[in-house]
Design a protein around this nucleic acid. Structure first.
Lengths: 197, 197
DNA sequence: CCAGAAACAGGAACGTGTTCTAGTATGACA
DNA sequence: TGTCATACTAGAACACGTTCCTGTTTCTGG
């Protein structure tokens, strides 16, 4: 139920390695064939782990993919936080960060499909992980807005709205309702309408 | 693939009845047990239809639930469009409409869970139905904004943002990340930040 | 009314996520 | 070092969405 909650972080080296192999296999499969290509038996086989062990580490396919997304977001976030977002206005800086994020994900559409789909399918048992990911993205957006300027009252709420739009547009794209190019157009439109200086 | 596209609307009375029975059984099951309780065999049995026939009418569980949502939204929309939304400002009128919609759905949480989950899981083969539902909700919001006032340039885009937030907050609630009461609080917050007079 | 086509019933069968079982290996501790 | 709990392997088994097959009913054109 709690998954990453209380296990007190006591993991042997071989366990850490196993976990890494699993995530790695997951990313590879997702990247090649999207959500449906991430099949638990296949993940287990590729990471040289028994199916039951895979389920011990990640209690469901959704957990697995959300964790994969976590590691990807962490990577991206680390890269983006290295330096202050460029741009003279709050909207410009937010645009910079979100466009980079969007482009970064769209570079691997199938992987994105797998991860976003998992985020949307997440139920209460993955709430913690999903919240952590949203928190990370929120921090990124808020920081971009504030960089070089003074904080404003509704920064956090605005970041939440942008993130909602961001995910919803990804879903619309995955659901074949809008084109890949429209994703960024819509998100940018939302930034313009929501972020004020 | 096209499902409701070209069949030229030539449906026997008994076919219309079958379709109605299926939707009705779906709503009943969803209402009682949510997404997972809507099992295709059970739906078929309750609507007195063979499994293969169910699949002839609705090519997947997602199609089925999205159609169910369509009929619910149509019902709600008809009720709301009967009279002009009250309120002196654009934000107030939009709040009225969206609060009614939110409350209406939250009155039956399991049904909502089933329908929203299906909307999010929809792939390209249900794009048409999903778009129709979004269009209906968008019309509702835009109309509320404009009622009694003059149209503004970004009405449609603002309605899209609100709808994205609306769905995303439902997902957050279903995913156990926020409480039911917070759903409306967050949506209202977004209205305040996004809708200007 | 008849012949063929389309729709339907009933149910087996398949795929994939998930769970369970039995046996083996590993690590902690006396 | 021996013992015991925990982790792991291998694979069977189960659940539900989906597909497919066979035979029957209903509809439609002539």
């Amino acid at each position: 139920m709690t998954s990453t909650a209380s296990p007190v972080e006591t993991e042997t080296a071989s366990q850490r390695a196993r976990r890494a192999r699993i995530i790695s296999a997951t990313l590879a499969l997702a990247s090649r064939g999207g959500f449906e290509a991430v099949q638990m038996r296949e993940v287990a086989e590729r990471s040289e782990v028994a199916l039951g062990t895979l389920y011990r580490y990640f209690p469901s396919k959704i957990h697995l993919l959300v964790s994969a997304m976590g590691s990807e977001v962490e990577r991206l976030s680390g890269r983006l936080q290295k330096r202050q977002a460029p741009g003279g206005t709050r909207a410009e800086r937010v645009s910079f960060v979100l466009e980079r994020s969007t482009r970064s994900l769209q570079r691997d559409p199938l992987l994105t499909e797998a991860m976003v789909r998992a985020m949307m399918a997440a139920d209460a048992s993955v709430a913690r992980e999903v919240s952590a990911i949203r928190q990370g993205m929120s921090d990124l957006i808020v920081q971009a807005m504030r960089d070089g300027g003074e904080p404003q009252e509704n920064d956090v709420e605005i970041a939440a709205i942008l993130q909602d739009v961001w995910f919803a547009r990804q879903i619309a794209w995955l659901g074949g309702r809008i084109e890949a190019a429209d994703v960024w157009r819509d998100i940018h439109q939302a930034i313009v309408l929501v972020v004020h200086d």
